[in-house]
Design a binder for these strands. Structure first.
Lengths: 137, 137
DNA sequence: ACGCATTCAATGCAAGTGCATTTAATTCCG
DNA sequence: CGGAATTAAATGCACTTGCATTGAATGCGT
């Protein structure tokens, strides 16, 4: 029957996703780690840097970030804490809702972002082009 | 230029992979956790169950498993430890290389596998059909 | 205006992961 | 044969993650 083929295809598809994801994420971490960032950290830093103007921008709400990043609320809170500790972002309170927090990139954060962005792009280009088979060739 | 488009496409592709991966893995964990398994655990249990005969099979070497699963050697070692503690697999020594370990599924492991396999397939079918957009529709 | 349910973000906690190291067995080469 | 280099798997350790809870601020209904 076709049902069995469809199931097999689904399983293969999932296996491929797992493979590409693991390989790319691992490589990404390897490239970014010397700069003090993990893949998740970069994801957030990238969002903040690309998504806000360099000056006079009030930044993103934590909640807004959490909608665009695949991370639990608690993990994100701690991640932002680390970025703040490293001077890459600042946490400020939100005028219109004092429960909220506004996160802004610092100049240092922007600088680091500019520094590692090419590395990230290079990894993506290296790992994502061609099929899910190992890109050793 | 085309280079910018290619780069943008790469980034989009990566974002989609991240989304599908996160959604599916999360859902998989949710389904399997009540049965005492995580997604990685199932991956290993599935490999062992499907890859070996029910009887008289000497099982897989840890190393063989590690080649097929996207997990560090240490993580795999501990994972097998948990499966063993739960009575789902057994660790036995390897006759031809006494450094090695042979891992076999127990009947209990096979039973659990049969129980959760449909759940896994259902999640894949639910999350993987249709585009990377949320399958809420 | 008051209180109750809700929402935002932070934190305690347990679990899983990877890197580096360790222990044990094997292989290679002199 | 004997010792050094190598390989298999386990373990110490630090870090990140998610779930559940907490503390604070808001909004809603009466």
């Amino acid at each position: 029957m076709a049902a069995e083929n469809a199931e097999r295809e689904l399983v293969d598809q999932w296996r491929d996703i797992l493979t590409v994801h693991a390989r790319t994420l691992c490589e990404l971490d390897r490239e970014l780690h010397p700069h003090g960032l993990g893949a998740s950290d970069f994801e957030v830093l990238d969002l903040l840097t690309v998504g806000t103007a360099a000056d006079g921008d009030s930044g993103f709400r934590v909640q807004e970030i959490s909608e665009r990043v695949h991370l639990s609320q608690s993990a994100l809170s701690r991640l932002i804490g680390r970025l703040e500790r490293d001077g890459l972002v600042t946490r400020g309170m939100c005028a219109e809702d004092r429960r909220g927090v506004r996160v802004c990139v610092t100049p240092k954060g922007r600088e680091l972002h500019g520094e590692v962005l090419p590395l990230q792009r290079a990894v993506l280009a290296r790992m994502l082009t061609g099929g899910p088979a190992a890109p050793d060739a």
